[in-house]
């Protein structure tokens, strides 16, 4: 007897549909927050049935965690692109600043989305994934920089506030377009470089 197995499920996964679901979910959570977000609203916005959403995701939390993990990984991936553990501290910082700026300007919604969920329980599981995926490269880079005497050892929070917050303030001015001193501020390479040089000077032992 001939036994045939049908391998296609009744509803199949479709990459385009999945992308559109992801995009709409990010847009909705940025606009309305996590509390107002529902699978039904998302289905309507993405042009799929609620049933379809549950093919891709087990439930609402699963959807948020999966999408946020993807976005976080992409963000870190881009931020660390071209960074090598043996680079000099100044060189490695320049690479990271360039990457972070690029990501922020190219994917502003993704950045806002991560900011929205960063302080919710959803982010706990993501933190672990990020640490295991990226902790190694960054950790080794910092370790080398400190050992070579290129960077002062500091508590993480102090280090991060000096190392990256100035860049984010520049970006904020750029996005707002307005600063206390100017009505149409645009971020420039020279403004970024000038700020970076001061940061490097501050972090030098």
């Amino acid at each position: 007897m001939n036994i045939h197995l049908y391998l296609l499920p009744m509803r199949t996964r479709d990459a385009n549909k999945e992308n559109s679901i992801r995009e709409k979910a990010i847009e909705m959570i940025v606009k309305e927050g996590l509390d107002g977000f529902s699978m039904q609203k998302l289905a309507k916005a993405a042009g799929v049935s609620p049933a379809t959403l549950y093919i891709y995701y087990n439930d609402r939390d699963d959807l948020v965690v999966k999408i946020a993990t993807e976005v976080s990984i992409r963000m870190m991936d881009i931020s660390l692109r071209g960074l090598h553990t043996k680079m000099s501290f100044a060189e490695g910082m320049a690479v990271q600043w360039k990457n972070r700026l690029e990501f922020y300007l190219n994917y502003p919604l993704d950045v806002q989305f991560i900011e929205q969920i960063r302080y919710t329980p959803v982010y706990d599981s993501i933190k672990k994934t990020m640490r295991t995926t990226f902790g190694d490269v960054l950790g080794k880079f910092m370790h080398n920089a400190i050992n070579k005497g290129e960077c002062t050892p500091l508590p993480f929070e102090v280090y991060w506030s000096v190392a990256f917050a100035p860049l984010y303030q520049l970006i904020k001015f750029h996005v707002q377009g307005e600063t206390p001193a100017s009505d149409n501020f645009k971020i420039t390479d020279s403004a970024v470089d000038q700020t970076l040089q001061l940061v490097l000077k501050a972090l030098k032992p």
């Binding site: 529902s38 699978m39 039904q40 609620p50 549950y54 087990n58 439930d59 609402r60 939390d61």
Partner: peptide
């Protein structure tokens, strides 16, 4: 599983 955090209480 049941989606406890959504309005339709979807059973999957």
């Amino acid at each position: 599983n049941v989606d406890e955090h959504d309005i339709d209480n979807v059973l999957r």
